[in-house]
């Protein structure tokens, strides 16, 4: 009835691209910017290899690795600082099964200071639970029932899934408050290992996806992510129908990028 709910702030550091928040904050990179945390799981696997990130022309090729911050460590060591510093925080969660998603949502619901969760519904061969429309609906059901009303529940989808628009509809039907549309593409490293491509190279893809999602879900809140390198490229996504944006790998090159985009986009 009131139309799409515009997230505040309107510019966010994308999952996995803002460190723990402290690193970005001490450089001034969180001014006017919210933080989507890196992926938080049920159990910590911090002994495993970290992300692999390689540059490619106009982009980064990356894989998440087996390294994941567990919810216990996140709540004990990272969230208190974010809350104390007043950083709007959306927690990116992903578990290997539905029970894990319920558990993560339950733990976060009991913790003051979190603005909401982001569910990573992109295709991942290691975590097949969410990468179909049906799976997305089940994950949303597992999470939404645990969270208090008024919290963000963001569903992050990408062109990598073959059923993107169906996944978007399923997520919205099952309680997602916004859809995060990202132009991140499935890619590979030089040795053939699966990876994702992001960075300015994918901005036109993001633009296309924002338009398509806008068409099938005209009333949904849309957050665009993928390829933002300056305020103008963010503005293009807003003009295409995004209500908010996430700045991701652009922060690796310029940690103040999101803050600068926020100064322009956030003010309008």
């Amino acid at each position: 009835m009131g139309g799409p709910v515009i997230p505040a702030p309107r510019v966010w550091a994308a999952a996995g691209c803002g460190g723990t928040g402290r690193d970005l904050h001490q450089l001034g990179g969180l001014a006017g910017v919210g933080l989507v945390t890196r992926r938080i799981g049920t159990a910590s696997s911090v002994g495993g290899p970290m992300a692999v990130i390689q540059e490619s022309p106009s982009g980064f090729v990356h894989a998440t690795g087996r390294h994941a911050q567990g919810i216990d460590g996140f709540l004990a060591r990272e969230l208190p600082w974010l809350v104390a510093t007043g950083v709007s925080t959306v927690v990116s969660i992903r578990a290997s099964d539905l029970a894990g998603h319920t558990e993560l949502a339950r733990r976060l619901a009991a913790t003051p200071g979190v603005s909401g969760v982001e569910l990573d519904l992109r295709h991942d061969p290691d975590l097949p639970v969410a990468s179909t429309p049906r799976g997305a609906a089940q994950v949303l059901d597992a999470v939404v029932s645990q969270l208090p009303g008024g919290q963000h529940v963001w569903a992050k989808v990408s062109a990598a899934g073959t059923q993107m628009l169906e996944t978007v509809s399923a997520a919205l039907d099952h309680g997602a408050t916004a859809v995060v549309v990202t132009g991140t593409l499935e890619a590979a490293f030089g040795d053939g290992r699966p990876a994702h491509l992001s960075g300015p190279a994918v901005h036109p893809v993001t633009l296309r996806l924002v338009g398509e999602v806008r068409r099938v879900a005209p009333d949904a809140t849309l957050i665009a992510s993928g390829g933002i390198v300056d305020a103008a490229s963010a503005r293009q996504l807003v003009d295409a129908g995004a209500h908010a944006v996430q700045v991701g790998t652009g922060l690796f090159h310029d940690p103040l990028l999101a803050a600068r985009v926020a100064a322009e986009i956030g003010a309008s």
């Binding site: 690193d23 970005l24 911090v46 002994g47 992300a51 980064f60 690796f252």
Partner: peptide, 29 residues
């Protein structure tokens, strides 16, 4: 260091903590 500022988690260094537990930490931060 892909970013050097602690943001990307792409410079993992395997260490063992004071508690004897293995961890992977950021080579830059």
């Amino acid at each position: 260091h892909p970013c050097g500022t602690g943001l990307c988690h792409g410079c993992g260094v395997p260490v063992v903590g004071e508690d004897g537990v293995g961890r992977t930490v950021r080579g830059c931060a």
